[in-house]
């Protein structure tokens, strides 16, 4: 965890927007899950219902807070700042969360089909390359691919030696391994 910098107006805008989205999602989810508890026996439903009430209240407060902040800021802040904040947030969402998350899910699919060690090699290779790409797209060259392949092989071999051979821990097996 790194130190956070003092919030800038753009951050405030982004935060207001994210609070609003978060509040709406929390409120809707808590209503959805609350409805799931209605068929449960009273004793089983009680504790989750308390929690879901709490979540719904937090959701409403988040929405309320975001709307209040929005009204305050709307007069002062530039529309440009809002747009910039949205672009920044979307950039993080897509490139720092969705792409690596998607790669992890692909690796999970491989885990189910071809086994843990080939899936690990795939994950190491792709994440290593993606990291280099995120720093500078020009990094993606033949030398990097070779380094990525070697690194993926070494890490996978190390894990196989330690977990499977040395400790005898079971790893998910698939068609290949």
């Amino acid at each position: 965890m790194m130190l956070t910098v003092a919030p800038l107006p753009t951050n405030a805008c982004a935060q207001m927007l994210s609070n609003l989205i978060l509040g709406v999602i929390v409120l809707l989810s808590s209503i959805f899950f609350y409805l799931q508890t209605t068929d449960l026996p009273d004793r089983s439903a009680l504790f989750p219902q308390y929690i879901l009430w709490g979540l719904a209240i937090v959701g409403v407060l988040l929405i309320f807070q975001a709307l209040l902040e929005g009204r305050k800021k709307a007069a002062k802040e530039e529309l440009e700042a809002r747009r910039e904040a949205r672009v920044q947030f979307n950039d993080i969402l897509i490139f720092q969360v969705m792409v690596p998350g998607g790669l992890m899910l692909v690796a999970y699919g491989l885990l189910l089909s071809v086994g843990f060690y080939p899936a690990s090699a795939f994950l190491v290779f792709t994440i290593y390359s993606y990291h280099a790409f995120r720093i500078d797209a020009e990094n993606l060259n033949r030398a990097l691919w070779v380094r990525a392949v070697i690194f993926a092989f070494v890490i996978t071999l190390f894990m196989y030696l330690v977990f499977t051979l040395l400790l005898g821990l079971p790893a998910p097996s698939g068609a290949l391994f």
Partner: peptide, 19 residues
């Protein structure tokens, strides 16, 4: 370098979650 740390941590964590 972070380029070595990130993939290593991810695959070790993957194994940890399974095991």
């Amino acid at each position: 370098k972070m380029e070595y740390i990130v993939p290593t941590v991810l695959v070790f964590a993957l194994f940890g979650a399974y095991s």
